[in-house]
C-alpha cells in the first residue's frame, strides 16, 4: 500500500497524538481485511504540533461516533479515484451504542444478555460520557 496515494478510501487526519491506536481498535480495523496505515507523531502543518493519521485503503463504512467519542477534533477525508471528494468534521455523539462496554462490575450490563451497551454524553464541555444504566463515567 502506498500510504501517500490512496485511490479509494478514508484518511482520518488531525488525530490527537497518541489516540490513533485507540481509534484503530474501536473502529475494529484490526478485524478487517483491508490495508490500514497508522502514522504516529506526524508533524501537523496546522500548528507544527504532533498528530496521528489513519489511512484506510478501502471505501468502508466507519462508525463516526467512535471518532466523535475518542477525539472530536479529527477530520475525515473521503477519497474516490484518487480525489478528495469529502472532508468531514466530527461532532461528539449524544449516545454511543455498542462501541465500548461498562467496566463497573456491579452494572447490569455485566450480566444481562442481548442488551445494548449505551453511553450518553452528560457534559459536553468536559467530554464526559456515562453508562446509561449505572451512570459510571467512562474514559475515552
Amino acid at each position: 500500500m502506498n500510504i501517500d496515494a490512496i485511490q479509494n478510501g478514508i484518511v482520518i487526519d488531525h488525530i490527537t497524538a497518541g489516540r490513533g491506536m485507540r481509534i484503530y481498535e474501536l473502529l475494529g480495523l484490526d478485524a478487517l481485511d483491508v490495508s490500514v496505515a497508522i502514522i504516529k507523531n506526524a508533524v501537523s502543518h496546522r500548528d507544527g504540533g504532533k498528530k496521528d493519521i489513519i489511512k484506510i485503503d478501502s471505501d468502508i463504512a466507519i462508525n463516526f461516533d467512535v471518532l466523535g467519542f475518542v477525539d472530536p477534533g479529527v477530520t475525515v477525508n473521503i477519497i474516490r479515484n484518487g480525489q478528495l471528494v469529502e472532508k468531514r468534521r466530527i461532532d461528539m455523539p449524544e449516545r454511543l451504542v455498542n462501541v465500548i462496554r461498562c467496566k463497573n462490575p456491579r452494572c447490569i450490563t455485566s450480566v444481562e444478555r442481548s442488551i445494548d451497551h449505551v453511553f450518553k454524553l452528560t457534559d459536553r464541555k468536559n467530554m464526559v460520557y456515562r453508562c446509561l444504566y449505572c451512570e459510571t463515567k467512562v474514559a475515552q
Partner: peptide, 26 residues
C-alpha cells in the same frame, strides 16, 4: 435488583410502568 441499572433495563422492556425499588448502590 442487586445490579445497578437493572430497573432501567426492566423499564425499557416492560409494557407497564416500573418503579425502581432499589438497584444496587445506584
Amino acid at each position: 435488583h442487586p445490579k445497578e441499572g437493572a430497573a432501567l433495563v426492566a423499564a425499557n422492556a416492560a409494557s407497564i410502568p416500573v418503579i425502581n425499588a432499589g438497584d444496587g448502590g445506584h
